[in-house]
């Protein structure tokens, strides 16, 4: 399937899904108010129409977005981000951040990043960010659940 057909179909399907979900929204409580389903329904209808127009547009020749190697790097980045998010939620900022920083710097900087420098940078950035935000600016950082 070409990119236009895929994009158009997905957009139209999102619009249809919103229209179906909007039907279940409650009726207006105030007289003459079009109610909470009115506005999303209009936007969903607009999305469906645009999706259909995109679907029938002829596909222009396009370069691949990323090389296979690029997609592999993107995949590892996604794993790291999900891991860091879970780490922040469960173990908190002070534990998750230096580990995430170390892995990211090593992953992005291979082979230039050095082991010892990476450890020092990871720890220093974590404590500076923690001190500036939590202590100076009084911005709460995730403390974990354990």
């Amino acid at each position: 399937m070409n990119r236009n057909r895929l994009t158009g179909s997905v957009l139209a399907l999102i619009g249809i899904a919103v229209l179906i979900m909007a039907k279940d929204l409650s009726a207006p409580v105030i007289e003459h108010d079009p109610g909470p389903r009115f506005f999303p329904s209009i936007a969903a209808a607009g999305l469906i129409i645009c999706g259909l127009f995109i679907l029938v547009q002829p596909q222009k020749r396009t370069e691949p977005f990323l090389t296979p190697e690029g997609w592999r790097r993107m995949g590892w980045m996604a794993v790291l981000l999900i891991g860091y998010t879970l780490g922040l939620i469960y173990s908190g900022f002070l534990i998750a951040t230096p580990i995430a920083l170390y892995i990211t710097i090593r992953m992005m900087g291979q082979p230039k990043s050095k082991y010892l420098t990476t450890v020092v940078v990871s720890l220093a950035v974590t404590f500076i960010v923690y001190y500036v935000f939590q202590e100076l600016l009084m911005v709460i950082l995730p403390s974990g659940v354990w």
């Binding site: 990211t104 710097i105 900087g109 990043s113 960010v129």
Partner: peptide, 11 residues
């Protein structure tokens, strides 16, 4: 270097 800048931006 990006390998220092980007991880800090991520945090």
């Amino acid at each position: 270097p990006r390998y220092y800048l980007y991880p800090v931006l991520m945090v």
